[in-house]
Amino acid sequence: MAKQKQQYVTIKGTKDGLTLQLDDRCSYEDLLKEIEERLIKRAGVAPNSPLVSVHLKVGNRYLTPEQEEELRALIRRSKNLVVDSIESNVISKAEALEWVQKMKISAVPRIVRSGQVLHVEGDLLLIGDVNPGGTVIAGGNIFILGALRGIAHAGYSGNKEAVIAASVMKPMQLRIGDVMNRAPDYKTDEGNEMECAYVDEHNQIVVDRLQLLMHLRPNLTRLERRM
């Protein structure tokens, strides 16, 4: 048999399983072929050997979701290997934009009036009020410089670490992740100024002084919190 001059796949064994470093300059087809030859067609796998997780490192190669799926399926055919993670140095522009959207704080000067919905992917800094019947939704935290009298939903994709802060906190409803809380039916005249809402250890939304936030969520504005 002709001996391969260059190997596209480097296999390393670690305590977490196998790490496959895949060359990022050869064609995708070559890669598939070599994986097939070296992993699937190898002899001597005991029929009942335990599952081994595989970490793929694809370097500067961009894999579409279909290609990732194809790789996973291919490696799964080897009876005892399962792809655990796929790591790539590159992401698509769309993914990058989405990531930026989720990371950034959108400052919006506006009054969200009854019937209006303001939706942002990342954190929301609203310079204005949310009137009764208005709704603000954010993927991250919500900070309102004016009065919150409507509905606020922070961490709408399920992030319970998100918080809602407002200069005047008189909401109809507060929602964080999948937790919800509504205002009491009686009206209070107490000052609801400079307050924040968060989900506590009992999975309840608690409203408290704004100043507590730095202790409760010390990573609130740090970049690395979502990386």
Binding site: R113, S114, G115, Q116, N131, P132, G133
Partner: peptide
């Protein structure tokens, strides 16, 4: 006032 708020938004 609630309805006025809605109409102002529109």
């Amino acid at each position: 006032v609630r309805d006025a708020d809605r109409i102002i938004g529109l």
